[in-house]
Write a protein that binds this DNA or RNA. Structure first.
Lengths: 125, 125
DNA sequence: TTCCATACTGACCTGTTGGTAACCATGGCC
DNA sequence: GGCCATGGTTACCAACAGGTCAGTATGGAA
């Protein structure tokens, strides 16, 4: 594992941006907000990502403390990814970004091109 | 000028991230929140950016409706960059990011490595 | 023995970002 | 005519993110 501690920006907002902005991180997080997910599940949920990149994004988020990775030594092996408290604390931030993104789309007359900000309400687990 | 209309992501949060995350955009925006700034001023305020990249970031933000560019045909020529209403509406979002960035730094024991979230209070103009 | 499922890893390629350094255009001033 | 300031542009590069595709490891099932 790369021990090289890549330092994050010292400007907090830049730090946050750096940590959140990966091609698939927002989507992955949305799914993890709903509860722990196995890799295979995430692959189903986000079919557009390749396995390699999916793992890549997850590992980066793990390194940044957003995601917890738990290995269950079963057969076949099972690995569960879940959002840490720190990860969960991103929910309102992502919501703010989402709402602003919508406003942005509106002001540029591209509302039809964007989805909504519904974050699936926590379901049981 | 490249007429190719690069479409932004349709997931609003990703759209927002795409629009905000450029190496210097946050810093530039902070300065523009305080009022219009000339290019030369911004160069002074953010000495670490090269002129090319500075203009690049400004133009991208202009294209995305965050920044307004006004040319005063004087001698020597003057150009002012200012935050549009849409740009100003990013202030709370950046604040949210900043606060989260601080929390992130805290939880990873790197508080000492980050600055604060003070957004200079609007001064007159 | 071969096959399958899981969860990875590695080689390789490409487009985008950010960076350096140099050059251009205008028009006043000396 | 040279020089200055402003506000750019251009050519060129290096680093990196993300993408494809193929390979690895484990251990039960057939």
């Amino acid at each position: 594992m790369a021990e090289i501690f890549k330092r994050l920006p010292s400007l907090p907002s830049e730090r946050a941006l750096k940590v959140i902005s990966g091609r698939w991180k927002a989507v992955i997080l949305y799914h993890l907000f709903d509860g722990p997910r196995r890799l295979s599940e995430l692959r189903r949920l986000v079919p557009a990502v390749s396995q390699k990149v999916l793992i890549q994004q997850l590992r980066e988020m793990e390194e940044h403390g957003l995601v917890h990775r738990e290995i269950f030594r079963e057969v076949p092996p099972r690995v569960e990814y879940s959002a840490t408290a720190l990860g969960q604390s991103l929910e309102p931030v992502l919501l703010a970004l989402c709402e602003w993104g919508q406003r942005h789309a509106e002001e540029l007359g591209e509302v039809d091109q964007v989805g909504d900000c519904i974050i699936r309400p926590r379901q049981g687990a």
